[in-house]
Write a protein that binds this DNA or RNA. Structure first.
Lengths: 112, 112
DNA sequence: AATATTGTTCGTAGTTTTGCGAACAACAAA
DNA sequence: TTTGTTGTTCGCAAAACTACGAACAATATT
């Protein structure tokens, strides 16, 4: 019964979790880093960077696209991928807000 | 054959993905936010915040603990949870570095 | 028209995640 | 000693995730 009750969480919590989930696999982090360093590139360039089959790479790209973190545009016979900058900035802000919320009370590093 | 080839990713990529994965569920984001706002609290306080069964809450707490994001200490008959501040700072830095890497080339918001 | 290139989609397999209720363990209180 | 409180663990079920090879689609090239 996974994800049945998502409606009960705040939209901002949902959005942050969505971005985090998309970033929750090393292959997808590697893809994002690669795209950030290149600004734009073809599928084959991404595929060459990763130790997994192209079918799997394609799936990870789909997930990143669904989460709104990247764009893909067809330039036959190839596909050009790039960062969805608008949403990456959105993610950056959500993570930034989340972590900043914790920092004020973090002068002392001891707890329970 | 999930996670077979993780050994082929950089340690920093792995770490970031690990933290992101732990944050990749709205219930866990809600838990972290709650703990950040309270500094420390008992299981029951967390459980009351969430629309899921206590067994499930306990599982999410386990995952956050395994990822190193929180601590739990037994104070019979209750359990006190708090943020693992050291690792939260670590996560903050990893995410910060990741997002900062993308920002320089983000003057223009158009791409492929 | 036949061939080559590029990447997606399909079908399949095994693992992990999410969720719940019930049972349990540990301690406190009556 | 019996009862109550607190939270974990167990056992199960459904869904999602990760991965692969094979087949396919779309476009160039010969």
């Amino acid at each position: 019964m996974a994800y049945t009750k998502n409606i009960d969480y705040e939209p901002e919590v949902m959005e942050l979790a969505r971005f985090a989930k998309a970033m929750g696999h090393p292959a997808r982090i590697a893809i994002l880093k690669h795209l950030l360093s290149l600004d734009t590139c073809f599928f084959s360039s991404i595929n060459d960077e990763l130790p997994i089959a192209k079918a799997t790479v394609s799936q990870h790209l789909s997930e990143l696209k669904d989460a709104g973190l990247i764009h893909g545009s067809i330039e036959p016979p190839r596909v050009n991928y790039c960062i969805n900058k608008e949403n990456l900035v959105k993610a950056k802000k959500l993570f930034g807000k989340f972590f900043k919320a914790g920092m004020p009370g973090m002068k002392d590093f001891d707890c329970c």
